[in-house]
Write a protein that binds this DNA or RNA. Structure first.
Lengths: 342, 342
DNA sequence: CCGCCATTCGAAAACGTTTGCGGCACCAAC
DNA sequence: GTTGGTGCCGCAAACGTTTTCGAATGGCGG
């Protein structure tokens, strides 16, 4: 059942059918209705490849995410949330979605941009990908419109979408301050990753604003994983003047810190308050449940799609909207792991 | 840069270029090499829509998963693992991947099958989708080749891929038995979902084989979420003859049961052993870490892709391979939550 | 009746590939 | 010298759409 067949059965030309189905003006209301009716009756589905070929646009955007990172179990639950946020936002905007992959090591740098050209993709959304992905760098450097969530690359037509990591961290510290804590330490992520650096910056800003002292020993580095949080917790609790509260830049590290406290015979939140970042599944499952800074995945996805559409609407000669990233606010989720200072 | 341009520059016809790039035989090795070289030099990327149009095949398969379920936070981390397993397996087989979505409520039943026809998709892989999805039922009922992981629908060209839930449950019970436990209870998932039913069946089978009594009170229903596991744990521990071990059909429920034990002043695993199912992230984060039955996501993804390829290779007149599902084995991950009976 | 505009439609040319068919050159066998 | 075969290649027709251009029709004022 193609458009020719449908045209024959409707007693009109293919041109008219095309116009009728695409809501072009030059068709009488009556024939349009007749064609429409017949189309659903016969189960006609337009051939997208053919449309793409002649229109030179596919209404399709590509999706990239890092598989290495997820194999390491890093941002897992977070990624999935983003993914479906992007998916729904995109389908609401009537875009199709294609997954992009790099086969392996020996992939040429141009793999992604080739894929984009092959499929006539109009843009790409990248999710939490590492800064050292060569293929992705090449993509960003090209003229393909890109929106990256939690990524660290720039290019002529690239816009970065990110949670307000600094503000989130600041809110976490403020929360602890409000509970009476004055000795607040932090566990950071790998500082070459923008989110980790920004969260640390937010922590510092809050401390300055609140007039809290931040000895060097109160800032200990981690890698976002459980073990590093546990080690950091041990280090902090062994200090001469141990903190009464810990802000960890990731939930897994926060949970690690809670383990360290338990091992030291301390009770959370009575003896030590802990706040995390991300609000992964596990945050609600551990005991006490983890107070954490939640990222708004839906908003992140929507923002990425909006950014992409802006670039597409602006046309290929757009005046480099890249510059400033789009920031979406976070939300502090208060649970059991943070309590008043004792 | 299209094939015509490339042909002009190579001094041959488009036909020859096409044959050279597609490794057809009727081209001399010398011209093939020349064309190949020029192609990468000029960055030629074949236009897939055009290829699809003329070849009537897209080398693309569709991917469906349930967004409602994931909004409820059910199988989150599990889903993502499956997703990337499928992604890599598919890209290794040189297939492209397209995400399918249903816009909303008022979607016609035929939404998915229409999408498949529109894009010339060759098959669909469905991930952990609920049995009551009308669009998906319609898809399965059609002649589109489908492979479903943890799904519950059948059709003329549909094959189901699933973990060996029964064997996994059996192994969990066996493990507890080996530790000396004789009073082993279970918390089930919603029994209308095949995985939940199969895990219960495995539990029962193991108990029969091992000669363990299973009073009705030892089988309590849950919904895969934390709270239901906690409630079930409370119920079980309040029995006259409480179990010394609990097998929960899902990790979140298992963690809930651990909470119930803690509330009752019992220590895990000293006073109560707990085993879960799925091996979600949180399983490794809680304390004590949860012993659980891990599903092999990579194998599940590979099996789904293999099933799909078998159907595709068999051609449209294939003799209904549907019948028996493909089963992939599980793996018992022993952690801290299970210990010898005391 | 003529001219003119609006409305509605059809013919046909694209879009970038693949592929069946045939052509040409060359060689071997008869 | 004809025939047959083989290796390499080009011509041109598809594939299913969209869209430009123009044509037909009808209404309406002059």
């Amino acid at each position: 059942m193609n458009i020719r067949e449908l045209a024959r059965r409707s007693g009109v030309s293919t041109a008219t059918v095309s116009r009728a189905l695409n809501d072009r003006a030059e068709v009488s209301e009556e024939t349009r209705a007749r064609i429409r009716r017949l189309a659903v009756e016969l189960g006609y589905a337009p051939n997208e490849p053919a449309r793409t070929l002649v229109r030179r646009r596919s209404d399709t955007i590509g999706l990239v995410w890092d598989s290495g990172q997820e194999a390491a179990g890093l941002h897992n639950p977070f990624l999935l949330g983003l993914l479906s946020a992007v998916r729904t936002a995109l389908s609401e905007a009537d875009y199709h979605l294609m997954l992009l992959t790099t086969a392996g090591e020996d992939e040429p740098d141009a793999a992604y941009v080739q894929a984009v050209r092959r499929h006539n993709l109009e843009g790409v959304i990248a999710l939490t990908t590492p800064p050292d992905d060569r293929c992705l760098r090449a993509l960003a450097a090209s003229t393909v419109p890109c929106a990256g969530i939690d990524t660290a690359f720039t290019g002529p037509r690239t816009v970065r979408v990110s949670s307000d990591n600094a503000a989130g961290a600041e809110a976490a510290v403020q929360h602890l301050y409000d509970l009476g804590h004055r000795r607040i330490a932090t566990v950071t992520g790998p500082l070459h990753l923008p989110p980790a650096a920004e969260r640390l910056a937010g922590y510092r800003r809050a401390c300055v604003r609140l007039g809290l002292a931040v000895p060097d020993s109160y800032v200990v580095g981690g890698d976002f994983f459980l073990a590093s949080g546990e080690a950091a917790g041990r280090r902090l609790l062994a200090l001469d003047e141990p903190p009464t509260a810990i802000f960890a830049a990731g939930d897994q590290m926060a949970i690690g810190a809670m383990h360290a406290a338990a091992d030291a015979g301390l009770s959370v939140p009575r003896d030590l308050a802990v706040v995390g970042f991300d609000d992964v599944d596990a945050a609600g499952l551990v005991r006490p449940a983890l107070t954490t800074v939640a990222q708004d995945q839906r908003a992140l996805g929507a923002a990425a799609v909006a950014a992409l559409r802006d670039m597409l609407d602006a046309g290929p000669s757009s005046p480099v909207p890249a510059a400033e990233p789009r920031i979406v606010p976070t939300r502090l989720v208060v649970r059991g792991s943070s309590g008043p200072r004792r």
